[in-house]
Amino acid sequence: MNLLLLANSEGPGNPVSFELLPAITAFVVFGVAFAILATKVWPTISKALDERNAKIVGEIKAAEDARTAAKAAQTEFEKSLANAREEAANMIKQARADAQRIADELKARNEQELAERVSRANADIESARKAAVAELQAQSAALAVEVASKILRREVNDQDNARLVQESLQELASSRH
């Protein structure tokens, strides 16, 4: 307490008085500090800040470019997807039409084939019928000759047989008509 009061008794001095030693010290100390900072500190910090700034700007630009590219890709993808959907729909439509056409063709072919088979069967039946009739006529003629031979009790030679058969057939044919 006494100590500081004593200091006050000496007076604080002139606040704006000029002291040479502090001034010279300040000038020299700042000069030395500035020289060290200017060579060792500020170039490093400036370079780092520039690099960091360039990196950040570059990253932002790359991100914006990537976003633009992604957006373009998305648009392209959506467009492709729409095209693919349309193409798929067309293919399904085409497949259905083809299936229908093939089914119609098969059906028509089957019907035609069936008609041909029926026609062929009818022809076969007709020819079989004709053969049966001819055979029947032949057997009837032979039987008639045999019966007639027996009736006449005489042998009829082959020429007579043939003539008789021919006559019998003609008669039979004329009788049918």
């Binding site: 502090p22 010290t25 300040a26 100390v29 700042f30 030395v32 500090a33 060290i36 900072l37 060792k40 500190v41 490093t44 910090i45 370079k47 780092a48 800040l49 690099e51 960091r52």
Partner: peptide, 21 residues
Amino acid sequence: LIVGALIVLVWLLYSASRIRI
């Protein structure tokens, strides 16, 4: 002044080494 200059130098030299990429 002298102590302050030393503090500035130590602080900024240390900071420069930490700010460097």
